[in-house]
Write a protein that binds this DNA or RNA. Structure first.
Lengths: 191, 191
DNA sequence: CTATGATATGTACGTCCGTACGTATCGTGA
DNA sequence: TCACGATACGTACGGACGTACATATCATAG
C-alpha cells in the first residue's frame, strides 16, 4: 500500500484538475456564503469548502478577499437589475408597468430570501467600501431608468424608494405584507 | 527601579478604578464601533480601546460579544423610536403629523450617518440572530403605533415602508433626495 | 514529443480573535 | 475596623483567519 499519490486524503475524488470556469463557480459560491453567513462569516476557507476546492485556489484566482466580495456583489446586482429590466421592458403600457412592478416586489424580490439577504449585506458593505458603493449606485440608476420607460423621473424615483421600503419591511417582518397589500400601496402612490 | 506597581504601562492615568456606569459606557462605545467599523469589525478589543478600559473589563461586564451587540442595538432602536414617538406625539392634527414625518425623515433620520449605518447593520444582524429580529420587530411595531395616532392602520404601514425606502435610498445615494423631494413623495402618498 | 505557461494544490507564517482566569483593589455593611 | 463581595486588571491559550509560496500537474503551441 504505497501508491505513488495515495498519501493523506481519503483519495476520494482527488484528481479534480482542469476545472475551467472555476473562478465563476467561486464567485457563485461566495454569493451563497454571503447569503448564509453574512459578509462577516465569509472567508476564503468557507468559500473554498462550499465550492469544494482547496484553499490555495482562492489566492490563485483572486488577489484578495475584497476582490471576491466585489465580484459577488456585482453579479448579484446585475442579476436582480436584469429581472427588473425584463419585467418593465415587457410592459406595453402604464397599467402593465404597474402590474410588472407589483409582480417584481411580491414575487421576484420577496420570493428569494437568499437574494434579499444579499441585498442588505451589500448595503452595509457599501457603506464602508467605495467600490461597492459604485455597484449600488449603478444598480439604483439602472432601476430608475427601467421605471422611466413608463413613469416620469420624479415618479420613478419615488416608486423606486417605495419598492425598497416595501421589500425591506416585508423581509424583516414576521408578519410580511400580502401581495394585496403591496398592490394597494403601489396603486395608492400612483393613483 | 523596582517600584511595586510601576511595571510596563507608562503609569499614566492608571488608577482608573471605581467606574460606576462603566457597563453603560461600554454599550455606547459598542454603538460607536459598530457605526464606524461595522458588526464585522466590532471586537472586544476595539470596544475596550474606544471606551479606554482594559480588555478584561469586557468579559467581566458581558457574557459574550453577542450580548454586547444585543444591548447596543436595543439601545439604538429605543433611541430612534423615542424620537419618532415624540415627533408624532407633539402633532395636534393630521397635517401637523405629516409635517412631523417629513421632519423625521429629512432631519432626524437622514441627519445622522452614524444612526443610519447602525440601522442597516441591525437589519443585517437581525437576519441571522433571532434576538435581534425581536428588536427590529418591536421597533417596527412601535413606529407603526406612533403613526396610527394620526393615520389608519393601512396607511400607517404603507407610510412606514415609504419612510424606510426614502431614508435608505437617500442614504445610499451620492445624490440624495432633497427635503423638497421627500416632502413631495410623502404628500403624494397621503394626498 | 517536448517545452512552456497556465492552473491547481498543500502547507506554513504571522496576526488577531473570543474567552478564561488568577490576581489586585475597591466600597461597604457588620 | 475589617472582612467580603463586587469590580477591575493583565495575561495567556487555542483557534481561525488572510495571505504567501513552493511544488505539482495540466493544456497546448511549435
Amino acid at each position: 500500500m504505497s501508491g505513488p499519490a495515495a498519501s493523506r486524503p481519503p483519495a476520494a475524488r482527488r484528481p479534480r484538475r482542469h476545472d475551467p470556469g472555476r473562478r465563476d463557480r467561486l464567485i457563485d459560491a461566495a454569493r451563497t456564503v454571503i447569503a448564509e453567513r453574512g459578509v462577516a462569516g465569509t472567508t476564503h476557507r468557507e468559500i473554498a469548502r462550499v465550492a469544494d476546492v482547496p484553499l490555495g485556489s482562492m489566492t490563485y484566482h483572486f488577489a484578495s478577499l475584497e476582490e471576491v466580495l466585489i465580484e459577488a456583489f456585482t453579479r448579484h446586482a446585475d442579476a436582480v437589475a436584469g429581472v427588473f429590466d425584463e419585467r418593465l421592458e415587457a410592459a406595453w403600457d402604464r397599467d402593465a408597468a404597474i402590474e410588472a412592478v407589483i409582480t417584481l416586489v411580491s414575487e421576484d424580490l420577496l420570493g428569494s430570501q437568499h437574494d434579499l439577504v444579499l441585498t442588505v449585506e451589500l448595503y452595509v458593505a457599501a457603506a464602508r467600501n467605495p467600490a461597492l458603493r459604485a455597484v449600488t449606485q449603478a444598480w439604483m440608476q439602472r432601476s430608475r431608468q427601467a421605471l422611466e420607460r413608463h413613469f416620469d423621473a420624479t415618479t420613478a424615483r419615488e416608486l423606486d424608494a417605495l419598492i425598497e421600503g416595501l421589500v425591506l419591511h416585508s423581509a424583516l417582518s414576521t408578519d410580511p405584507m400580502t401581495p394585496e397589500q403591496i398592490r394597494h400601496a403601489i396603486h395608492r402612490h400612483l393613483r
